[in-house]
Write a protein that binds this DNA or RNA. Structure first.
Lengths: 220, 220
DNA sequence: TCACCCATGTGAAAATTTTAACATACGCCG
DNA sequence: CGGCGTATGTTAAAATTTTCACATGGGTGA
């Protein structure tokens, strides 16, 4: 019953599913068995109708009059999001961001296994971060192939990002999380999402200066 | 002439303005004086019509038949985004992410001044990261008030994030960049953007497992 | 000066996404 | 066992955002 549904839905839904998942984990941890879309929405600042709609794209997971069974919905979301398996990931770039990612424990908890970190700094190669070895950048191709790595995190300077991405894709990686502040051009069967740190701060700067003296606010 | 326009525009426009800004900086650095929406779009994987529309919300910046003057558009975008001034920022949490942010040089380059880092770990207090001192968390209120800090970066565990946010807002901070994997509830005159690291990886996991055996893909 | 080329700015259409509203179904209680 | 309260799943409307198509105007060269 549960699953099987229309398969066209907003891109933003995926992101929200991830939020739901996390909130449900929290509820589960606190021993809460059942939650309504209203309650979940309150926790996440998301309208209850939005939650119901998002879930409805994938199946009927709730019970009318009752709400959603937390554990059951968790299980379903885990499957939907593809978190019911382990993913092998490499990090390219052992700088501050790469190191932070290697130390980010939530990744392991979710099944994202950081297999290795690559860098071309002689001083870093051979060391490890949070138990993960730093290997020479030149070995990346072999390593990715041998270990069937599918996902990669790019944490190198903007100027190097495109070359790194190309190399990764050539080696077989099909999903990339990019921290370099540049738009990487890739084949369309490779998934790439970017985390843009300055952009977010700049958006905040916009919002903060917005209410003050911007002309286009005045002349509508 | 340039500025003064309708003031309602998509939220996503702000983010793109930020991308335009960065791409233009790059062009400028390479000595390119003029760029068309078509060329800029090619660099960023954004449709030219989208770029023209985005810019048109704020003014007429281009010359028909010619394109946009890179330096001029940079200057205008700088103003629009609120980057024509310095912003004082504090970081809360001197863990790996907080440290990475303190070391992220692009912030300074854009006028985001990291004034201090706060933590309650005795072993970290008194040290500094990338020249920025780590101060006791308890001093945060005074510091924010005395230094008229407006922006903050939260890089603490999820469980602590809400309390930290409340304290920051109480002290006078009105914009927050949140790295904690939790939805922070705030007064609506405080701007808060979240950078969600696991969510992005999870979205990738979804896309990767998507093409395989998901039921709702089959039964449309 | 005029004709032609080119790329902007824009108004209208299309596509996407969110919100609202409600009929439907579940469980409980009497 | 039937009525009632409740929260889902869904349909339709509203809102937002993107894309298209083209008239408009600046520059160049003859």
């Amino acid at each position: 019953m549960a699953r099987r549904k229309k398969y066209k839905f907003p891109k933003t839904t995926i992101e929200r599913l991830s939020y739901y998942f996390r909130a449900l984990e929290d509820l589960s941890k606190r021993g809460i068995d059942t939650v309504s879309s209203e309650a979940l929405g309150g926790k996440l600042n998301i309208k209850s109708s939005q939650i119901r709609k998002d879930l409805s794209y994938f199946g009927d997971f709730g019970k009318r009059g009752m709400g959603y069974d937390v554990k059951y919905l968790l299980k379903e979301l885990k499957y939907i999001l593809g978190l019911d398996r382990e993913w092998s990931v490499v990090i390219v770039g052992a700088g501050h961001i790469g190191a932070a990612m290697a130390n980010y424990d939530s990744f392991e908890k979710r099944g994202f296994n950081i297999a290795a970190i690559f860098d071309n700094d002689e001083k870093k190669i051979g060391k490890e971060i949070n138990g993960t070895p730093i290997l020479p950048y030149d070995n990346i191709d072999d390593f990715v192939k041998q270990n069937k790595i599918e996902m990669a995190i790019i944490a190198v300077p903007a100027a190097a990002a495109q070359a790194v991405a190309d190399k990764l894709v050539e080696s077989g990686v099909t999903a990339i999380l990019n921290f370099a502040p540049v738009a990487v051009q890739l084949d369309e069967n490779v998934r790439c999402l970017s985390v843009d740190l300055t952009t977010k701060l700049e958006a905040l700067a916009y919002y903060m200066s917005y209410s003050q003296d911007k002309l286009w606010k005045i002349y509508s």
